[in-house]
Nucleic acid binder design. Structure first.
Length: 416
DNA sequence: AAGGCTTCCAACCGCCACGCG
DNA sequence: TCGCGTGGCGGTTGGAAGCCT
């Protein structure tokens, strides 16, 4: 793709991905991780270039994607981040857990821009349209990229162009780092990007989080699943690696919750987990009946919120699953919507649950549990500001708020 | 009902940065 | 230092779906 040698070597498929292709890619990554993307299509048996596979995974198949419509808080945050960062969508996306740069970019171009104009705000400069059109404000001729990069709060300068051109890695991004002195003259009252971002992120932190983003090793779900004695002993999942999927935060400075004393089962919910938009905060747990005392049971948590377009998911769920298999083989995340009835077998009991009952979040366990896996890398967001004082925080949807005690829910689901 | 128009978004393109030999 | 391979990013596009007349 795009001048990459791999694209010229053979006739490669283009265009939309078929479910079969998705399945192949998911299977492959579940088993081996992606490793070198250029080798993925060959190993996975796909007539695609590595770049296309990577894009498909990142933008669509990755299990930690939130999907669904953007909440108002998210939109507000995007607007504010755009005012500071400009069209650096990946940087903006780093502050919106579960959202991709492509998604945000599309939202901006199709929706937010329009809304801002309707409100009389120039989407490029974030200034009133009248002021911009008045001629005082020059709209840069070299396109939106520069116009937004050199946001009004950061006077256009070669240094800023340089900053825009060479953005920093997440850990040392402009978000986390003061601007170069040349961009913020001494004695100037112009706030730094860091300060602006801190302010706006602090504003949003009750509803959205991920103040910084770090890239760290994550593991294929099969490895996630290797939580020893999860059900059999009063241990926690502290050994599990953290995932960017908020529904996978079962470790990391974790707080333990005795979910079901009868099962002697503690669940550790990360207190480092970023807060979530309320659209995805309602969480329930489903544990298969065969969990108790089953040493061989492999556990993993997953999320699949693959709802498309108008579907707003108020009930993204955490599913802690034992080894299971799917009647229909591996389903693409996009197929695993709550209303689809994929049959799920739970271990040897062969108890069937409809997918909608099983809730979002199954990673294909047949492939997953067989795997000897290499780490795969996901962009893992760590929200240091997240404060979760109890499981009730996880139940912000109106429906689940009615269920007064989280433990009741868990207990119920455990027993079920 | 049908054709044209609009909207939305998944995927592609082109470019750049980086690592490695 | 250079060339190559690769990953990542932002801009753009094609087509499916929805809307309008």
């Amino acid at each position: 793709m795009g001048g990459h040698s791999c694209c010229y070597k053979q006739k490669l498929r283009k265009g939309l991905w078929s479910p079969e292709e998705d399945e192949k890619l998911i299977k492959h990554i579940a088993k081996y991780g992606h490793g070198c993307w250029s080798s993925v299509p060959k190993q996975a048996g796909l007539q695609r270039c590595g770049k296309s596979c990577r894009l498909r995974w990142i933008n669509y198949l990755r299990p930690d994607l939130k999907r669904g419509t953007f909440s108002q808080q998210e939109e507000d945050l995007i607007i504010e981040l755009h005012a500071v960062l400009g069209n650096r969508w990946s940087k903006i996306a780093a502050h919106l857990p579960g959202r991709t740069d492509n998604e945000i970019k599309n939202l901006w171009n199709s929706c937010i821009k329009k809304k801002l104009r309707q409100r009389g705000i120039d989407p490029n400069t974030h200034k009133p349209l009248a002021e911009v059109e008045g001629g005082d404000e020059k709209v840069p001729s070299n396109g939106e990229k520069n116009s937004s990069s050199n946001d009004l709060r950061f006077p256009a300068s070669p240094a800023n162009d340089k900053l825009a051109a060479k953005e920093l890695t997440p850990s040392t991004s402009a978000v986390d780092k003061p601007l170069d002195e040349s961009t913020t003259p001494k004695g100037s009252s112009t706030p730094t990007k860091e300060l602006l971002l801190d302010q706006l992120l602090a504003t949003h932190e009750s509803t959205l989080s991920c103040r910084s983003s770090i890239s760290m090793g994550c593991f294929p779900l099969p490895q996630l699943s290797r939580a020893p004695d999860f059900c059999g002993n009063p241990t926690t999942l502290a050994a599990l690696p953290i995932s960017s999927n908020p529904l996978l935060w079962l470790n990391h400075t974790a707080t333990q919750y005795d979910v079901n004393p009868e099962l002697n089962c503690n669940i550790a919910i990360s207190t480092d987990a970023p807060s979530l938009s309320t659209t995805i905060l309602s969480t329930s747990m489903v544990l298969p009946p065969s969990c108790a005392g089953d040493d061989a049971t492999n556990w993993y948590a997953g999320n699949c919120d693959s709802s498309r377009r108008s579907m707003v998911n108020d009930a993204t769920s955490m599913a802690l699953q034992s080894s299971c298999s799917f009647d229909s083989g591996i389903s693409a995340w996009s197929d695993l919507t709550p209303d689809k009835d994929v049959q799920v077998h739970l271990g040897e009991d062969n108890q069937d649950l409809k997918w909608s009952e099983y809730l979002h979040g199954a990673f294909p366990a047949t492939a997953a549990t067989q795997a000897q896996c290499q780490p795969l890398y996901l962009d893992v967001k760590r929200g240091g500001q997240f404060a979760m004082n109890g499981l009730s925080t996880w139940h912000q949807s109106p429906q689940l708020q009615q269920q007064s005690h989280a433990s009741d829910i868990y207990a119920k689901d455990f027993h079920s």
